[in-house]
Simulated assay, not measured.
Amino acid sequence: MDSGISGIISCYNSEAFIANTLDSIFNQTTALSSLIIVDDCSSDATIDAVHRYVTARGLDAGTVSVLPNRINLGISMSYNLGIMACRTKYAMLFSHDDISHPDRVKSTLNAFAEGAAIVCSYMDVPASGQKITLPEMPSLVALGLALGNVVPAPTVSLDVDIARQNKLYFNPQNDYAEDYDLWCQYILRGYSFHVVPEFLVAYTLHDQQASVTRQAHQKLVAERVRLQYLRSLFPFLQPEQSEVLVRILLYEKHMLGHISQSFNEAILNGMEKQSVAPGVQSVYGYVRQMLTSPVSAPVTVQ
Protein backbone atom coordinates (compact mmCIF):
# COMPACT_ATOMS: atom_id res chain seq x y z
CA MET A 1 0.00 0.00 0.00
CA ASP A 2 1.26 3.48 -0.94
CA SER A 3 2.28 5.47 2.15
CA GLY A 4 0.68 8.65 0.78
CA ILE A 5 -2.82 10.11 0.99
CA SER A 6 -5.71 9.91 -1.45
CA GLY A 7 -8.72 12.18 -1.68
CA ILE A 8 -12.27 10.82 -1.81
CA ILE A 9 -15.25 12.83 -3.03
CA SER A 10 -18.85 11.63 -3.01
CA CYS A 11 -20.72 13.55 -5.70
CA TYR A 12 -24.40 13.97 -6.39
CA ASN A 13 -25.58 16.68 -8.80
CA SER A 14 -22.35 18.55 -8.22
CA GLU A 15 -21.99 20.22 -11.62
CA ALA A 16 -22.29 23.75 -10.21
CA PHE A 17 -19.67 23.25 -7.48
CA ILE A 18 -17.19 20.60 -8.52
CA ALA A 19 -14.73 22.76 -10.50
CA ASN A 20 -14.06 25.11 -7.57
CA THR A 21 -13.68 22.16 -5.22
CA LEU A 22 -11.24 20.47 -7.58
CA ASP A 23 -9.25 23.69 -7.94
CA SER A 24 -8.73 23.76 -4.17
CA ILE A 25 -7.68 20.08 -4.21
CA PHE A 26 -5.15 20.45 -7.02
CA ASN A 27 -3.71 23.72 -5.69
CA GLN A 28 -2.39 22.10 -2.50
CA THR A 29 1.15 22.86 -1.35
CA THR A 30 1.57 19.08 -0.86
CA ALA A 31 -0.08 17.01 -3.56
CA LEU A 32 -2.42 14.09 -3.03
CA SER A 33 -1.25 10.72 -4.32
CA SER A 34 -4.57 10.31 -6.12
CA LEU A 35 -8.20 11.40 -6.13
CA ILE A 36 -11.20 9.04 -6.17
CA ILE A 37 -14.51 10.57 -7.26
CA VAL A 38 -17.61 8.49 -6.59
CA ASP A 39 -20.61 9.81 -8.52
CA ASP A 40 -23.86 8.69 -6.90
CA CYS A 41 -25.94 8.48 -10.07
CA SER A 42 -26.17 12.23 -10.65
CA SER A 43 -28.99 13.47 -12.87
CA ASP A 44 -27.00 16.50 -14.04
CA ALA A 45 -23.69 16.71 -15.96
CA THR A 46 -21.39 16.14 -12.96
CA ILE A 47 -19.34 13.43 -14.65
CA ASP A 48 -18.95 15.51 -17.81
CA ALA A 49 -17.79 18.46 -15.71
CA VAL A 50 -15.19 16.24 -14.00
CA HIS A 51 -13.90 14.88 -17.31
CA ARG A 52 -13.63 18.41 -18.73
CA TYR A 53 -11.66 19.48 -15.67
CA VAL A 54 -9.34 16.47 -15.83
CA THR A 55 -8.67 17.07 -19.53
CA ALA A 56 -8.05 20.81 -19.07
CA ARG A 57 -5.60 20.10 -16.25
CA GLY A 58 -3.83 17.34 -18.19
CA LEU A 59 -4.42 14.84 -15.38
CA ASP A 60 -4.16 11.12 -16.03
CA ALA A 61 -6.22 8.13 -14.95
CA GLY A 62 -3.64 7.26 -12.28
CA THR A 63 -4.22 10.62 -10.63
CA VAL A 64 -8.01 10.86 -10.90
CA SER A 65 -10.39 7.92 -11.03
CA VAL A 66 -14.15 8.30 -11.45
CA LEU A 67 -16.42 5.57 -10.06
CA PRO A 68 -20.01 6.03 -11.28
CA ASN A 69 -22.71 4.28 -9.25
CA ARG A 70 -25.26 2.59 -11.52
CA ILE A 71 -27.99 3.35 -8.97
CA ASN A 72 -28.24 5.95 -6.24
CA LEU A 73 -26.65 4.35 -3.16
CA GLY A 74 -26.54 7.32 -0.81
CA ILE A 75 -23.63 9.18 0.72
CA SER A 76 -22.57 6.46 3.17
CA MET A 77 -22.13 3.71 0.59
CA SER A 78 -20.51 6.12 -1.85
CA TYR A 79 -17.82 7.13 0.64
CA ASN A 80 -17.39 3.49 1.66
CA LEU A 81 -16.77 2.54 -1.96
CA GLY A 82 -14.13 5.27 -2.14
CA ILE A 83 -12.42 4.02 1.03
CA MET A 84 -12.46 0.43 -0.26
CA ALA A 85 -10.94 1.58 -3.58
CA CYS A 86 -8.20 3.53 -1.81
CA ARG A 87 -4.65 2.28 -2.42
CA THR A 88 -2.87 4.62 -0.03
CA LYS A 89 -2.37 4.48 3.73
CA TYR A 90 -4.44 7.60 4.35
CA ALA A 91 -7.66 9.01 2.89
CA MET A 92 -8.87 12.61 2.97
CA LEU A 93 -12.63 13.07 2.71
CA PHE A 94 -13.84 15.98 0.59
CA SER A 95 -17.33 17.39 0.23
CA HIS A 96 -18.21 18.10 -3.40
CA ASP A 97 -18.99 21.75 -2.70
CA ASP A 98 -16.42 22.91 -0.11
CA ILE A 99 -13.03 24.58 -0.53
CA SER A 100 -9.86 23.24 1.07
CA HIS A 101 -7.07 25.50 2.32
CA PRO A 102 -3.84 25.06 0.29
CA ASP A 103 -2.07 23.55 3.34
CA ARG A 104 -4.79 21.03 4.22
CA VAL A 105 -2.90 18.01 2.88
CA LYS A 106 0.39 19.15 4.39
CA SER A 107 -1.05 19.81 7.86
CA THR A 108 -3.02 16.57 7.84
CA LEU A 109 0.00 14.45 6.90
CA ASN A 110 1.93 16.11 9.74
CA ALA A 111 -0.82 14.98 12.13
CA PHE A 112 -0.70 11.41 10.82
CA ALA A 113 3.09 11.43 11.26
CA GLU A 114 2.39 11.87 14.98
CA GLY A 115 0.43 8.60 15.02
CA ALA A 116 -3.14 9.82 14.51
CA ALA A 117 -5.87 7.40 13.43
CA ILE A 118 -8.37 10.08 12.45
CA VAL A 119 -7.75 13.79 11.89
CA CYS A 120 -9.99 16.86 11.71
CA SER A 121 -9.54 20.62 11.81
CA TYR A 122 -11.30 23.92 12.30
CA MET A 123 -13.68 25.06 9.57
CA ASP A 124 -15.01 28.46 8.58
CA VAL A 125 -18.26 29.41 6.84
CA PRO A 126 -17.50 32.50 4.72
CA ALA A 127 -21.14 33.18 3.80
CA SER A 128 -22.16 33.57 7.44
CA GLY A 129 -18.86 34.56 9.03
CA GLN A 130 -19.10 31.57 11.37
CA LYS A 131 -15.87 30.04 12.66
CA ILE A 132 -16.17 26.42 13.78
CA THR A 133 -13.52 25.36 16.27
CA LEU A 134 -13.22 22.46 18.66
CA PRO A 135 -10.97 21.60 21.61
CA GLU A 136 -7.60 20.02 20.91
CA MET A 137 -7.86 17.68 23.91
CA PRO A 138 -9.23 14.35 22.56
CA SER A 139 -11.25 13.58 25.69
CA LEU A 140 -13.14 16.87 25.30
CA VAL A 141 -13.95 16.08 21.66
CA ALA A 142 -15.26 12.69 22.79
CA LEU A 143 -17.40 14.31 25.48
CA GLY A 144 -18.64 16.97 23.07
CA LEU A 145 -19.96 14.26 20.76
CA ALA A 146 -22.31 13.22 23.57
CA LEU A 147 -24.22 16.48 23.02
CA GLY A 148 -24.07 16.68 19.22
CA ASN A 149 -21.78 16.39 16.21
CA VAL A 150 -18.89 18.71 17.04
CA VAL A 151 -16.58 17.33 14.33
CA PRO A 152 -16.87 19.11 10.94
CA ALA A 153 -17.19 16.26 8.44
CA PRO A 154 -15.60 18.13 5.49
CA THR A 155 -12.33 18.40 7.46
CA VAL A 156 -11.86 14.70 8.29
CA SER A 157 -9.11 12.34 7.10
CA LEU A 158 -8.50 8.79 8.26
CA ASP A 159 -5.99 5.96 8.38
CA VAL A 160 -7.29 3.47 5.81
CA ASP A 161 -5.69 0.42 7.46
CA ILE A 162 -7.34 1.21 10.79
CA ALA A 163 -10.70 1.80 9.12
CA ARG A 164 -10.55 -1.51 7.26
CA GLN A 165 -9.21 -3.61 10.14
CA ASN A 166 -11.91 -2.33 12.50
CA LYS A 167 -14.68 -2.13 9.88
CA LEU A 168 -15.07 1.55 10.64
CA TYR A 169 -17.26 2.51 7.69
CA PHE A 170 -20.24 4.83 7.29
CA ASN A 171 -23.54 3.16 8.19
CA PRO A 172 -26.18 3.73 5.48
CA GLN A 173 -28.90 3.23 8.12
CA ASN A 174 -27.74 6.57 9.53
CA ASP A 175 -27.57 8.53 6.27
CA TYR A 176 -27.76 12.31 6.87
CA ALA A 177 -26.04 11.77 10.23
CA GLU A 178 -23.69 9.04 8.99
CA ASP A 179 -20.62 11.10 9.81
CA TYR A 180 -21.75 11.71 13.41
CA ASP A 181 -22.33 7.99 13.88
CA LEU A 182 -18.89 7.07 12.53
CA TRP A 183 -17.08 9.59 14.75
CA CYS A 184 -18.81 8.06 17.79
CA GLN A 185 -17.79 4.56 16.65
CA TYR A 186 -14.15 5.66 16.46
CA ILE A 187 -14.27 6.79 20.10
CA LEU A 188 -16.02 3.62 21.27
CA ARG A 189 -13.49 1.45 19.41
CA GLY A 190 -10.65 3.17 21.23
CA TYR A 191 -9.47 5.88 18.83
CA SER A 192 -9.20 9.61 19.44
CA PHE A 193 -9.45 12.61 17.15
CA HIS A 194 -6.32 14.56 16.38
CA VAL A 195 -7.46 18.16 15.96
CA VAL A 196 -5.40 20.44 13.72
CA PRO A 197 -6.04 23.94 15.14
CA GLU A 198 -6.20 25.59 11.73
CA PHE A 199 -9.08 26.60 9.44
CA LEU A 200 -8.36 24.08 6.69
CA VAL A 201 -11.80 24.01 5.02
CA ALA A 202 -14.27 26.69 3.94
CA TYR A 203 -17.86 25.42 4.05
CA THR A 204 -20.18 26.43 1.21
CA LEU A 205 -23.79 27.27 2.08
CA HIS A 206 -26.54 26.60 -0.48
CA ASP A 207 -30.15 25.45 -0.55
CA GLN A 208 -29.42 21.99 -2.01
CA GLN A 209 -27.61 20.70 1.08
CA ALA A 210 -29.06 17.82 3.10
CA SER A 211 -29.02 20.06 6.18
CA VAL A 212 -31.60 22.16 4.34
CA THR A 213 -33.55 19.63 2.25
CA ARG A 214 -33.58 16.85 4.88
CA GLN A 215 -33.30 18.92 8.03
CA ALA A 216 -36.10 17.24 10.03
CA HIS A 217 -34.95 13.73 9.15
CA GLN A 218 -31.33 14.63 9.87
CA LYS A 219 -32.26 15.82 13.37
CA LEU A 220 -34.13 12.59 14.11
CA VAL A 221 -31.24 10.39 13.02
CA ALA A 222 -28.67 12.53 14.83
CA GLU A 223 -30.65 12.33 18.07
CA ARG A 224 -30.84 8.54 17.78
CA VAL A 225 -27.07 8.39 17.25
CA ARG A 226 -26.46 10.71 20.19
CA LEU A 227 -28.55 8.64 22.61
CA GLN A 228 -26.87 5.41 21.50
CA TYR A 229 -23.47 7.00 22.07
CA LEU A 230 -24.46 8.31 25.51
CA ARG A 231 -25.67 4.85 26.55
CA SER A 232 -22.43 3.27 25.31
CA LEU A 233 -20.23 5.88 26.98
CA PHE A 234 -21.97 5.78 30.36
CA PRO A 235 -24.00 2.52 30.47
CA PHE A 236 -24.31 2.75 34.25
CA LEU A 237 -26.31 6.03 34.06
CA GLN A 238 -29.63 7.03 32.58
CA PRO A 239 -29.19 9.10 29.38
CA GLU A 240 -30.66 12.16 31.15
CA GLN A 241 -28.08 11.81 33.93
CA SER A 242 -25.26 11.36 31.43
CA GLU A 243 -26.31 14.49 29.56
CA VAL A 244 -26.35 16.56 32.75
CA LEU A 245 -22.91 15.25 33.67
CA VAL A 246 -21.45 16.08 30.25
CA ARG A 247 -22.95 19.59 30.24
CA ILE A 248 -21.45 20.30 33.65
CA LEU A 249 -18.03 18.98 32.60
CA LEU A 250 -17.97 20.99 29.38
CA TYR A 251 -19.80 24.21 30.20
CA GLU A 252 -20.65 24.49 33.89
CA LYS A 253 -17.55 23.37 35.78
CA HIS A 254 -18.49 25.65 38.68
CA MET A 255 -21.35 23.21 39.36
CA LEU A 256 -19.02 20.26 40.02
CA GLY A 257 -18.99 21.08 43.72
CA HIS A 258 -22.78 20.83 43.80
CA ILE A 259 -22.98 17.24 42.54
CA SER A 260 -24.36 15.07 45.35
CA GLN A 261 -21.96 12.64 46.97
CA SER A 262 -24.15 9.67 46.03
CA PHE A 263 -24.24 10.67 42.34
CA ASN A 264 -20.51 11.34 42.38
CA GLU A 265 -19.83 7.90 43.83
CA ALA A 266 -22.21 6.24 41.36
CA ILE A 267 -20.25 7.76 38.48
CA LEU A 268 -16.83 6.85 39.87
CA ASN A 269 -17.88 3.31 40.79
CA GLY A 270 -19.61 2.83 37.44
CA MET A 271 -16.49 3.85 35.50
CA GLU A 272 -14.32 1.62 37.68
CA LYS A 273 -16.38 -1.45 36.78
CA GLN A 274 -16.36 -0.85 33.02
CA SER A 275 -13.95 -2.60 30.68
CA VAL A 276 -13.58 -0.05 27.90
CA ALA A 277 -11.35 0.83 24.96
CA PRO A 278 -8.52 3.37 25.36
CA GLY A 279 -10.52 6.17 23.72
CA VAL A 280 -13.26 5.81 26.33
CA GLN A 281 -10.71 5.26 29.09
CA SER A 282 -9.25 8.69 28.33
CA VAL A 283 -12.74 10.16 28.75
CA TYR A 284 -13.15 8.34 32.06
CA GLY A 285 -9.75 9.64 33.15
CA TYR A 286 -10.84 13.20 32.48
CA VAL A 287 -14.19 12.70 34.25
CA ARG A 288 -12.46 11.07 37.23
CA GLN A 289 -9.97 13.91 37.56
CA MET A 290 -12.68 16.56 37.36
CA LEU A 291 -14.83 14.82 39.99
CA THR A 292 -12.01 14.21 42.46
CA SER A 293 -9.88 17.36 42.05
CA PRO A 294 -10.54 21.04 42.75
CA VAL A 295 -12.10 22.78 39.74
CA SER A 296 -9.05 25.07 39.50
CA ALA A 297 -6.63 22.13 39.27
CA PRO A 298 -4.84 21.79 35.92
CA VAL A 299 -6.26 19.10 33.68
CA THR A 300 -3.60 16.72 32.35
CA VAL A 301 -5.59 13.73 31.11
CA GLN A 302 -5.72 13.39 27.33
Rank of each mutant, 00 (worst) to 15 (best):
A56I: 00
A85C: 00
A85V: 00
A49K: 13
R87E: 08
I71H: 13
G62Y: 05
V64D: 00
H51A: 09
N69D: 01
M92S: 15
I75S: 12
V54K: 13
R70G: 09
D60P: 06
P68G: 04
L81R: 15
H51W: 13
P68E: 08
G82N: 01
L67T: 03
L59K: 09
V64E: 10
N69T: 00
T88L: 00
P68S: 03
V54Q: 14
R70D: 15
A61W: 05
T88W: 00
A61R: 09
G74N: 06
A49G: 02
T63L: 10
R57K: 15
V50G: 01
S76R: 03
I71V: 14
M77I: 09
P68A: 07
L81M: 10
H51L: 15
G62H: 11
N72M: 05
G74P: 06
N72L: 02
L67H: 09
G82H: 04
Y90L: 05
R52N: 11
V54H: 07
L73Q: 14
A56H: 02
I83N: 08
S65Y: 05
C86L: 03
M77F: 12
I71M: 05
Y79F: 15
K89R: 12
S78Q: 09
R87Y: 06
S65I: 09
S76Q: 07
I75H: 12
R87C: 06
M77E: 14
S76K: 07
L81P: 00
V66S: 00
L93R: 08
V50W: 10
R52W: 12
Y90C: 01
T55H: 07
L59H: 08
M77S: 09
R57W: 10
A49F: 06
T88C: 05
A49N: 06
R70E: 11
S65Q: 10
N80W: 13
F94G: 06
S76P: 04
S65W: 12
L81I: 11
R70C: 11
G82S: 04
G74R: 12
A91I: 00
